[in-house]
Design a protein around this nucleic acid. Structure first.
Lengths: 203, 203
DNA sequence: CATGAAGGTTAACACCGTTAAGTGGCCTCG
DNA sequence: CGAGGCCACTTAACGGTGTTAACCTTCATG
């Protein structure tokens, strides 16, 4: 007997099939109506089977989000490479982030605004290496570069990053939740925010 | 027979008692674990009784939030009156908002980040007069004043208000949901954000 | 052929929001 | 005084949720 048949490495095929179905269901019905029973029905197995391949609902959703973050991080890198001016690069990265968040509302919702906000749990963000974490460090590094290059005035890079990040985060949040509010488009709002905020940060 | 015994004006005492208990329960167990059945148990009636005095769960929560917004609006006015310099006033209003949101996380959560985000439903924000709506208009007016006085450079006041608002909103969101993330304190973050953002907006 | 594990199921627990139907007491009117 | 009716509230139920314990098959191996 294999003493440690590491959880959920039994039959990768079905695990992958579940994730695939979960992704589709998630987009079909939205985060609100995504349930284990529905997923089971969709994938053609009984609900309990899901618990053989995943620890719980959160585990499934976490996997979905990590998958998306992979894509996000790739886009971040692409944008960063395509822009030589460090300040412009910083701005573009945040504009991308805002657009990305708004384009994947359900994922963003469940990742950062859910009751059990996936990336806010004590054991997650700093201790475990998640793609969300890597994205954060990636962006912070760009801020550090800007300060080092003298493009941004000397300041605590952590604080600058967080100010930019939370502000962008707020735009996405508003876009997701204030459906009826006649909010300016994410692009316009993001442009306004970043232009003026960065002006304040500039040397 | 009274043809229209306007909904929920039957016995104000019990209605008030329910709201009182709801408020307590809300603070005790948090938004996540607030349920109608728990509330009923706490107040000493059967769950169905609640539906005599309130349309549904959302109705109760809405009432709770409006109660808190009343307090918020009062504080807004107080701060506005206490500061003559219009730019400083604007800044103080947002710092107050951030602090207020962080101090009443569950209310803020349910009001602006809940699945059925109370103030984001089509029939709510713009059509019905809510205290949230009044708060928004109140702040926007201060922005308008700043632009009129030439303290802020000429710009679409709606856009400026929304940029400030969503950014502040993001700080609160981060504070509520990213429990494990080593985030700067709301005050520091708010100060940083507003100082630099307003610098960008200035004439 | 028996053993045992792999892979999946049924049934159940403890919740949830909400509603239809029913019950007991009190007030009013004939 | 008695009957009707309404008021305030309850019981029982519907259809849903995440999750777990216990139970079946099927199949390969000693």
């Amino acid at each position: 007997m294999q003493t440690v048949a590491r959880k959920s490495e039994k039959k990768p095929e079905l695990r992958e099939a579940i994730l695939q179905a979960a992704q589709e269901l998630f987009l079909e019905v939205g985060f609100e109506h995504f349930s284990m029973r529905r997923l089971a029905r969709k994938v053609g197995y009984s609900p309990t089977t899901l618990y053989i391949y995943f620890r719980d609902k959160q585990d499934i959703i976490y996997s979905l989000c990590e998958g998306l973050f992979e894509q996000y991080l790739a886009e971040l890198r692409q944008v960063a490479e395509g822009e030589t001016d460090s300040l412009a690069r910083l701005k573009k990265l945040f504009l991308l982030s805002i657009r990305f968040g708004c384009n994947h509302q359900d994922h963003y919702h469940v990742a950062f605004f859910s009751s059990a906000a996936i990336y806010g749990r004590p054991e997650e963000f700093l201790s475990r290496d998640s793609l969300a974490r890597r994205s954060y460090f990636f962006i912070r590094q760009v801020v550090v570069d800007c300060i080092a290059a003298g493009v941004l005035r000397p300041a605590d890079p952590e604080l600058v990053t967080q100010a930019l990040l939370t502000a962008s985060h707020g735009i996405i949040a508003a876009h997701i939740f204030w459906k009826d509010f006649p909010l300016a488009s994410p692009d316009v709002l993001g442009e306004t925010l970043l232009h003026n905020l960065l002006e304040g940060f500039q040397a």
